[in-house]
Every structure is written in structure tokens, then in C-alpha cells.
Design a protein around this nucleic acid. Structure first.
Lengths: 136, 136
DNA sequence: TTATGTGCAAAACATTTGCAGGAGT
DNA sequence: ACTCCTGCAAATGTTTTGCACATAA
């Protein structure tokens, strides 16, 4: 665990990182808070937000700006795509090849200096499909 | 302007739609509120939110779930991609060909019933690039 | 020792909602 | 008339922040 300068290795920071690493879901700040609180009952929600933000800024974790009302966090920083269930809001990875070339295509079509891209698929997850089938 | 059943053509709804159609930016609910308020000073912010939501549900406008803290709205409903400036947050269209085929590619890699996808590029817009150049 | 981090609570935002009165059809 | 819609204000949900104390380096 090599942290960057100006980032101390505190118990809170360490446990947030450990808990985030344990799950393959893409938890919201509040879900991380719930996970961490089982081990550190007195941790504050503000501390969780501050640390997730700081870890994301330093490229140690990924902050997902996907649809829905809450941001989500991911211990995997390698570039990959996501899918969000339109019914329950859960987010999963989509392991298809990253389309590096579309950055250049986009560069020709707009006046921005392109930094990157993200693809967000939308769909209905297995559980929600099953529930719908039962109901109708 | 053909509205769907159960949607009355109110002055508020009409003007929201007109103002949204005038701009090529992708305004937030609050920006729409400011635009509309010049013509309807007594309109409530809640009415703007309710109407944008309703118009989006009926496929008359597009609700953009892009990064950042606020949702944005777009009078153009044809499928297209967006780019967001990492510095100022503005959102512009990216007119490249829509990649229909990646939906099938994604379908093979995950257990969802795929409904669609959206690509969000990130970059630095012209104005912000210019400002950075001046500053350094 | 000292800058950085923490817990707590309040503040700041964005968005939604309840309700009584108003307006479209 | 009979719904649906509006303005207003209050409520909700998420994230940020101020501050006094604690702690890693």
C-alpha cells in the first residue's frame, strides 16, 4: 500500500480501502459507510466522503459518475465500462474491449481537448428480470 | 406540438419546451427555470422539475444523466453522444456515428437485458483551454 | 511538534412532494 | 364539472464544511 505524499495512512483510510476492495459491487458512499461502520462504529460519514474523494483524486480508486442520484466507487482503476440496471440501479462491470480509437474520432468532431471517455450501458439485471417474469 | 394523452398543454409546459428548444447548451433544471422565469416570473421551480421529468418520460425531451451534480436536459431526442468539460462542466454534443453494434458485444459479456448505451467523453473546452493558456 | 485527519453537527445543494387553489378540456 | 396542473413551502436525500480535538509522521 504505497500512499502519495501528504496522505497519511490512517486506520479509517485503510479500512475504507480494504472494504472497497472486498466487493465487486460499486458501492455508494453510504454503502461504504455501512460496510466500514461494522469495523469502526464511530467513523463519521464525512470522513468516508472525504477519503473516497481523496483516494479518487490520487488515482487509487475510481469515482463513477454514472446515472442515478448517487456517485459510486470502484477499487478497480483500470479503464472499463459499466452497466446500470434501470429498475434497481445496481451497477456492474462490462468487460468488453476499451475503444481507444473513438477518442480520436471524437476529437475531429468537436472543439475540445479530449481526455477520455466512458460508456454506460443501461439494461435490466437478472434479478429484476426474474421478478418481472414472476409478477406478470 | 402533439402531446400525449393525460398531458395538458399548459402555458408553463409550452414555454419550458420553447426555451429548451432555443438553446444548444444542455441546461440544468435551474438554468431552464432562469430562462423561463423571464417570461413567466411567477413559475415555481417545482413546476419546472415536474415538467422536465414528465416531458422526458414521454420521450419529448431527453434527460441527460451525465457526470457532475445536476441532471441536464436536451430538446434533441435523437441518440447522440456528449462531452463534458472537466473544468467548467459545460456539456456539448459529439456528432459521431452511433455505435449500435456495441450493444450486442456487451450483451455477450454480461447477464443483463441490454436496453441501450451512452458515451460520455471528457475533455477541456475551448474557453477553458484559452484561460489556462493565458494564466500560465 | 505540527500538519493532516477525525467525529460531530450544521450547512449547502439538488430534487421531490403535500396541499389548497387554479386552469385546460 | 372533473381532472390535471401550479405556486408555494416544507421535506428529503446527498454531499460538503467548520470546528475543536486527536493522531501519524
Amino acid at each position: 500500500m504505497d500512499f502519495l505524499p501528504n496522505m497519511r495512512l490512517t486506520t479509517q483510510r485503510q479500512i475504507i480501502l480494504e472494504e472497497l476492495g472486498k466487493v465487486t459491487s460499486h458501492p455508494t458512499a453510504n454503502e461504504v459507510y455501512d460496510m466500514v461502520r461494522k469495523r469502526l462504529p464511530r467513523i463519521g460519514l464525512g470522513t468516508v466522503y472525504r477519503n473516497l474523494e481523496l483516494l479518487a483524486e490520487n488515482g487509487i480508486i475510481l469515482k463513477l459518475e454514472v446515472g442515478g442520484t448517487q456517485k459510486r466507487f470502484d477499487a478497480t482503476i483500470e479503464s472499463h465500462y459499466h452497466i446500470r440496471c434501470s429498475v434497481c440501479g445496481r451497477v456492474d462491470d462490462v468487460d468488453i474491449e476499451v475503444q481507444e480509437e473513438i477518442n480520436e474520432t471524437a476529437a475531429k468532431s468537436c472543439d475540445y481537448k479530449i481526455l477520455g471517455h466512458h460508456i454506460e450501458f443501461s439494461g435490466i439485471c437478472n434479478e429484476c428480470s426474474a421478478k418481472e417474469t414472476v409478477l406478470h
